[in-house]
Every structure is written in structure tokens, then in C-alpha cells.
Nucleic acid binder design. Sequence first.
DNA 1: AATATATTTGCATTTAATTGCAGTTTTAGA
DNA 2: TCTAAAACTGCAATTAAATGCAAATATATT
Lengths: 249, 249
Amino acid sequence: MLKEERQHAILNEVELHNKVLLTDLADKLNVSVDTVRRDVKELDEENLLVKVHGGAVSLGFANHSPQRNNVYALDKKVAIAKKAIALLRNNSVILIDGGTTCLELAKLLPTNLKLTCFTISLPVAMELLRKPNVETIFIGGTLSRDSQISMGPSAIHALSEIKVDYSFIGTGYVDTEFGLTEFDWDVVQTKKAVINASKKAVLLCISEKLNSQHRFKTCSLNVINTMITELEPWDTKLTPFKNQNTQIL
Amino acid sequence: MLKEERQHAILNEVELHNKVLLTDLADKLNVSVDTVRRDVKELDEENLLVKVHGGAVSLGFANHSPQRNNVYALDKKVAIAKKAIALLRNNSVILIDGGTTCLELAKLLPTNLKLTCFTISLPVAMELLRKPNVETIFIGGTLSRDSQISMGPSAIHALSEIKVDYSFIGTGYVDTEFGLTEFDWDVVQTKKAVINASKKAVLLCISEKLNSQHRFKTCSLNVINTMITELEPWDTKLTPFKNQNTQIL
DNA sequence: AATATATTTGCATTTAATTGCAGTTTTAGA
DNA sequence: TCTAAAACTGCAATTAAATGCAAATATATT
């Protein structure tokens, strides 16, 4: 039996039942478990199914909801959030963007810290409501299905009417030359408004996003007052960013 | 049984009933309570549900404990939500209030129905984002910690600028004489704005709230175009409400 | 067709993940 | 405050995954 043929059969099986056990497949296809495992691994790498411990599930069945990937690089995000929190004082007025790093910031806010927090992110808002000393104001707008943030003209207009002490923002990509960039045009427009709504913009960014870029530009690096990564400020990976007038924490 | 499969089943169960006991899950899935506990812990870390002592609750019902009867009368709320959905047409523009009955409405919206939905409720917004054919607009404002809705002047102002086909609202108390009443002053102000933001106001209200009142008045009954309860319209409990010019479903 | 080369497959071994259980600590609710 | 139920911890047994290697099979080239 050809590999091609076998993988086709595996895909059919997965599509049909949404889940498959490697042992069942091996049995049905008369090959060893190792072989099906390798097949499934390949199919997974081609994003045709999702490999899980003991078997595979169809793409539709897999839980890759917007919230799902949160666990990724959590320790780094926690480190970043802690540095960001050190900037805050009682009665600070801040604005928190969407994204998993910003969500981590919201989660880790000390319960005794008195704050006024604006946000455009639904998950961040949920977290903020759990903090007894935080007054939370949600910036309304059209909600984006995958990033779960307010966007569009009404969000941008609402943002144009505020000026907070700090905005904490995330970004898809950052580069010394191209600055902050994103995959999505609407997101860029919204982030611009977020940055303009603050006296100081603080970028929260895990180091693996450094030196990467995409289609649309949010702003140049020099618009960012402070950049926080999980690295020590003297880490060599950060040296290209030191020529800018952005503080690095 | 695959772990993925089990976690999927757990999520389904939580979505369906809003709450779930670990012991019940263990029983149903034929695994130990420890295993279920570990699964639920993972799902919680991925923000797909909220783990609580003894079980788990859906994201919308966070803050409530599973044993406590805050999610009570679910079947009645489902019945009400279904009647409300029957009013909707493709391309309807609606506004959904907070509260558990309205949340149930959001959950049960058919996935093929094209809608534009405004809402002031964080949990409702979360649910709406899961509907592929619903455009969701969140009305910004100061968030209330316990009701998880936008309130205050900016929410009221934003509401003053829209006029949707239907608003679906909940209430704390309702009475033929005093109309709709609430415990909280700010909530009343917001609900007034919600009602004004719609051509037709639809009250979703389980029968046990009938003939009860509290401090602050939202509006008289005759401001409400349609009142939906879980009862049949000819039920004797509804007779006192029939003298009004409110349609009863 | 024959040979050389590359790929695929199965097996043994090591490594890692999952699960249930027992004992202890913590929690919720009376 | 007290008590029963639930959560956590460490542990052992089971099961799956990864790795290296040799045999088998497929592919390409002459």
C-alpha cells in the first residue's frame, strides 16, 4: 500500500469520525503503529488534521478557539507583565490593549492597587472586573471575532476623547527599521488610536517578535516611550533597539 | 478515549448546562475524578471555562458557584429565549441587555441567522462572537462589577444615538402597578436608555418575577411592547398583565 | 533490465505523557 | 468553629512518543 493512499485513508477516517486512535488505524491499514504515527505527524505538519496524544482529531474538532493559544510562552509574558506593573502607581489612569501579553498584565494587577483602566479587549475587561480596586471602562465599538477587541470608527472616536497616563500595547511584529507592524489593517487603525490616547505608550513584546515585520505599519519605534521584553535590558538581542529614543526595560 | 475527546465532551457539557460537577463528569466519562479535575484545570488555563470548587461553570456564568442556584430556572430561560428568537428575521438589528435570560438568548441564536447585535453585556458579547453571522457592536461605558454591563453617562450617550428594531431586556422585578423596578439606580438609568434605543422593547422575564417590586423604577409596563415568560400566554398568572397594551408571548 | 540511491517501514530501546490511587491539606458551608 | 467534601501532592503502572538502526521497498539512471 502506498503512503499517499494510506494518508488519504487516514484523512477520510478523521473527517468521518472527527477522531481516530493510532492503534485503530494501524489495525485497519495493516501497518505498524509507528507508520501511522509518522503519517499522522506529516498530516499534522500540513495542517490537515491535529495530532494528539494517542491519535488525531479533525481540524473542526480541535479546540483552537481564539482564547486557546494562551499558554504559549506564558512565563515570558508573566515576566513582561511584572515589569509593566512596576510602572504603575496608585490612581494611575491606564489603557490596556488586547492580546495575550496584555491579558497577562490584567491578570497580574495587584488587588490592592487603585487604578482607572480603559480597555478595548473583552478578555482583559473580564479580568479587570475581578480586581476590586480597579474602575474599568470599556471602549465600545465593532467587535473583532478573532482578536476580541473593539475596532472601527466608533472605537477610534471614543479613544480620541481620552488621554491616559500609560497605554500598554501589544504588537504582531516589531523591527528597528519598520517599527510596529500588523497583519490586519483595521487592527492597525485601532492601535494608532490607542497610542494617541495616551501620554506614554508602553510596548509589551516577547523577544521572539523582535526583528520581524508584516504588511501594515502601526507606528515607528520612536513613538513608543518604553519597550518591555522578557530579556534583561543589556541582552545583546536588544542592542539594535538601543539607538532609538525608546526606553528599554 | 482520547484526552481531546474527553475535554471536548466536558466543554459541551458546560456549554449546555452552564455548570457541571466533577463527580458527574467522572461518572459520565468513566474516568477518575482526578482525571476530570486535571482536564478542567487545563481548560480553565486556556480560558475555555472557569473552574470552581467542586466543578466548572461556563465563561458567562463565572462569578457564580455551581451549587448555588444562580443558574437556576435554566429550562425556563431556554423556553423564553426560544420564543424571543421566533421574533427575529434575517438582517434584524437588535440590542441585547445583560442578565442570565438575555445571555441564554445570545447562546441560542441560530448560527445561520444574519443579525446586527448591539449589547452592553460582556458575557453576551462573548457569546455573540461565536456566531459567525452576527455582527457585534459593544456599547462602551463604565463596567459594573457584578452585572458585567456597561453603565454610566457614556453608555447612555452611546445608546441615545441608536434605534434598533428590537431591544431584549431583563428586569429584576415586574409588577402591573409599578412596572419594571430594580435594586440599583445606575442599572435603571441604563435600562431606560436601552429601551429608548429601540423601536420595540421586549421584556424577557421568568414568571417568578411577576408581581414583585423594588426601589427604583425603570419604566411602566405600557412602555414594553412584548413580554415573554416561560408560561403559556393564557396562564392565569398572566391575567393581571392582560389589561395593559403589552403583547404577551 | 540492472544497479545505485533514496525512501519507507518495522522493531527495540529510551524517554515522556497519562492516569488512578493513597495520604495530606484545603475549602465550603452548616 | 467544626466537618464532610474537594483539591493537591507524590507515586507507580500503563501507554504512547521519539530515536536509532537495519531490512525492505520504491525511484531514478544508465
